[in-house]
Design a protein around this nucleic acid. Structure first.
Length: 834
DNA sequence: CTCTCCCT
């Protein structure tokens, strides 16, 4: 065997694993860890003849690692070395090394938590920090500590921050290995370009082609940027013999292979790629890397339950990985579109998927594992709480978890199916009817893969399902989707044979439409049409179709996929559904309510009988015979909403309120608080008994408000009120003048001056403690003077006032001595008759 | 102006 850099550290690694149950191996790309380490461990005494399981983040990597190791042993895959990935496995009775993808390990652990036949688990490429890799490690750590002390765990990675992992593994040794690659020079931009990205990248590519030789690999965040850069470069006129290739995940395998393929002699190629070329695919013959420093990543929002794509700066680890792509065959050059000064500000490591992912599958796995509380496990990055809670709530609504967070019988089965729990719920709902199960499996497989009609603007999922049937092998992913659908179908059927016929759900419908199946997966995304192409979903969020199309007029849709694009999500995939189907499928989710509500527009109570699914109303009819209590309560709520002015207070009522407020101001705690706020707070007490049968604010006019408020007083208080704060005062002229209590702290008596002749002092209220404020008026009721001290007025101001009034009202009676004068409500006092 | 990568 050729010597590889890893061989130098193998003895150290073997020793570490002999002494401890864990180790961390940090090896640069090309060191040979993936193929050398499992073979080197095979005859270790601690392994006791048990198996080695090695985790790979990709199916392709798992298969080729197994292939290569088998070749080294001079065997076929499936003998000593085998692999297991989704839909494909090659393992035999003698297999000692199983290379598996990350999801497979989770299933192995769930089937046998002690991993009895396994002596070591190796986590390759752990720095990629996939959700299932992190989960697998957490589960293995617990299996090790509770059941299998001798189980060896080895975490291998290219650039991982090794210390935290070593701590997690129980103070494990960290072993470093050099890689085997050629040096790559790094050229930073002298300044950040202000040009559009495709132009900045394109210019750098042209510069690199001039300065150096070899093929170029250009990292751009997404397909859109790749297209733009390609057209910009073509517009510039490429040198002859330069071939342009595009490489991203939505291309077919054939197109990808063409992009990767080596060049003809005398040809150079420029490959414009997404991060797919960072680790998943290796482009041959690259000597130049141009790195935009950006990548597009999904961010799941627990708040909306939706994912959004974000364009983010890459980590330094990632940038180094990209740079390394230029040094696989010969020394190379890497051009970075950011400056050397910016570089240290990039994050060091790639963000673990745990922080940004939909956790529903993870939460279900943990529930099945028996640890619904994630803090019982050891994590490198614990699941974020909000996302965890959101996922648990979704699983509960799908009936996969019970209230305690334990998996239901269905939840257990869904976890074993190995698919998103939403889709699992759909399969189990459909299982009783063979045709429905067939279709559900096809829909689930379609939704588990990239859209097979990527460019198609029509979002109807039926189009995809039909394409799958009609296209044969011509649709690139069709084969795998059909294989996946078939596998799920067999698993459900197998289990039916073991357990007997499943109960028929979904009563009342003769046939299952796509919509009625998908309703079981997306109960929160049933959408109701608001206008053509505009919908609101059961979750309360808006959703829009990207353009008008056949589905735009459907009254209801099931939205399978949508982008979180601000206020309204953009619908990517959906199916038509009828109201009858919604009511038949989602019985448990429907809320039948008798709503008694306030309508601020008409100022009245509205009683409706409704069927709701979350935020959408399926039917809404007038409700006869609504609960009188509820109607009255709602009317009171309406009054509170509008405020005190909603109460039709008569003049008398307002006066009474003023007087009562004055009495409570005077300090007696037994007087009821009749401030506006207090009255609104106590509507139930004083108003409610009188509003039964009423529905609107206008009907309140019928109520004798003054009487209702007066009823708040005891008999004694009522009497005291009349004595202390009378409604009227009889003035010397004999008139009964009303007191104005609008400001309870200062009651006002507005009266013509002439009617007061004879009074020496200001009249006082509340046992003489509070003088009234006199508004002294002219004969024509115009204000002349305001005073609380009548005696001073007579002594001082009166003489001036008198002069003035005499001029304006010469026929009136303006005596010099107001004390002795006879008060009058006429121009002059009547001559005495006695 | 239309979507990144990956997995049971």
């Amino acid at each position: 065997m050729t010597r590889l850099p890893i061989d130098e550290v193998l003895p150290e690694l073997l020793l570490a694993l002999q002494e401890r149950s864990g180790a961390v191996l940090v090896a640069e790309p090309g060191a040979g860890k993936t193929t050398r380490v499992p073979l080197a461990l095979l005859d270790q005494p601690w392994l006791g003849g048990k198996k080695i399981v090695m985790l790979e983040p990709r199916r392709l990597a798992a298969r080729s690692a197994a292939q290569y190791m088998a070749q080294l042993l001079g065997e076929k895959v499936g003998e000593t070395v085998g692999y297991r990935v989704r839909l494909d496995s090659k393992v035999g009775p003698r297999t000692r090394i199983e290379v598996v993808t990350e999801g497979v390990l989770t299933r192995m652990l769930q089937d046998d938590p002690s991993l009895d036949e396994v002596g070591a688990v190796l986590f390759d490429e752990f720095h990629e920090r996939h959700l299932h890799g992190d989960l697998g490690l957490a589960l293995c750590l617990q299996a090790q500590s509770l059941l299998r002390e001798e189980l060896r765990l080895l975490v291998m990675s290219a650039t991982l921050e090794a210390e935290p992992v070593a701590v997690l593994l129980g103070d494990a040794a960290v072993i470093h290995s050099k890689g085997r690659s050629y040096p790559v020079t790094t050229r930073y931009a002298s300044a950040r370009s202000t040009a559009p990205l495709e132009q900045a990248a394109g210019q750098t590519v042209l510069q690199a082609l001039r300065e150096t030789e070899g093929d170029a690999l250009v990292f751009l965040p997404g397909a859109a940027e790749i297209r733009k850069a390609a057209s910009w470069l073509r517009g510039q006129g490429l040198p002859s013999g330069v071939r342009l290739a595009e490489l991203h995940g939505s291309l077919s395998l054939e197109e990808q292979a063409a992009a990767i393929a080596p060049c003809a002699p005398n040809e150079r190629k420029i490959v414009l790629a997404t991060s797919i070329a960072e680790s998943s695919l290796t482009v041959e013959g690259i000597k130049i890397v141009v790195d935009s420093g950006l990548s597009r990543v999904p961010r799941f929002s627990p708040r909306t339950g939706l994912s959004r794509l974000e364009t983010v700066p890459v980590s330094r680890d990632s940038a180094d990985q990209r740079r390394g792509r230029a040094g696989r065959v010969a020394p190379g050059h890497c051009y970075r579109l950011w400056t050397e000064q910016e570089h240290p500000h990039l994050p060091q490591h790639t963000r673990p998927e745990m922080l940004d992912a939909d956790l529903s599958a993870l939460v279900l796995e943990l529930a099945v594992w028996g640890t619904p509380d994630p803090s019982e496990l050891q994590w490198l990055t614990p699941p974020p709480e909000a996302a965890y809670e959101g996922a648990a709530a979704l699983l509960h609504s799908l009936n996969s978890l019970d209230r305690l967070g334990k998996p239901t019988a269905e939840g257990l089965r869904i976890a074993k199916l190995g698919m998103h729990p939403r889709l699992g719920a759909m399969l189990l709902a459909a299982e009783a009817q063979p045709e429905a199960l067939d279709r559900a499996c096809v829909l689930a497989a379609l939704l588990s893969e990239r859209d097979i009609l990527g460019a198609e603007r029509n979002v109807d999922i039926a189009l995809r399902a039909d394409a799958l049937h009609s296209a044969g092998g011509s649709v690139p992913a069709a084969h795998r989707i059909r294989a996946q659908a078939g596998q799920w179908q067999r698993r459900v059927r197998e289990r039916q044979r073991e357990a007997g016929a499943p109960a028929q759900r979904h009563k009342g419908l003769a046939a299952w439409s796509d919509g009625s199946l998908l309703a079981y997966a997306y109960p929160d995304r049933i959408a109701q049409r608001r206008a053509d192409g505009r919908y609101v979903m059961a979750s309360g969020r808006g959703a829009v179709l990207p353009e008008l199309q056949p589905l735009s007029r459907s009254p209801y849709l099931v939205v399978c996929e949508l982008d979180d694009a601000g206020a309204e999500g953009r619908i990517r995939l959906a199916a038509d559904i009828s109201q009858a189907e919604i009511e038949a499928c989602l019985t448990a989710h429907l809320v039948r309510e008798e709503a008694v509500e306030w309508d601020p527009g008409t100022g009245s109570v509205r009683a409706r009988r409704r069927v709701r699914l979350g935020a959408i109303v399926l039917s809404d009819n007038p409700l006869e015979g609504a609960d009188p209590e509820a109607v009255a309560d709602t009317l009171l709520a309406g009054i509170r909403l509008k405020g005190f002015s909603a109460l039709p207070m008569s003049k008398n009522a307002l006066s009474l309120l003023g007087r009562m407020r004055l009495m409570s101001l005077s300090g007696d705690p037994l007087w009821p608080d009749v401030s506006e706020g207090a009255l609104l707070d106590t509507l139930e007490h004083w108003l409610k008994p009188h509003v039964y049968g009423m529905r609107s604010l206008s009907e309140l006019n019928k109520l004798p408000m003054a009487q209702l408020i007066g009823d708040l007083l005891t008999w004694n208080q009522a009497r005291e009120l009349d004595e202390q704060v009378p409604t009227h005062i009889t003035v010397p002229s004999g008139s009964r003048i009303p007191l104005d209590y609008s400001d309870p702290s200062s009651p006002v008596l507005a009266v013509r001056l002439q009617e007061l002749f004879g009074w020496r002092e200001t009249p006082r209220l509340v046992n003489g403690r509070l003088p009234v404020t006199l508004h002294l008026l002219s004969p024509s009721q115009r204000p002349v003077q305001v005073t609380k001290d009548l005696a001073s007025f007579w002594e001082q101001a009166y003489f001036e006032v008198k002069k003035d009034l005499k001029g304006r009202y010469p026929k009136h009676y303006w005596p010099d001595n107001p004390y002795e004068a006879i008060a009058t409500n006429r121009a002059k006092p009547r001559p005495s008759t006695s």
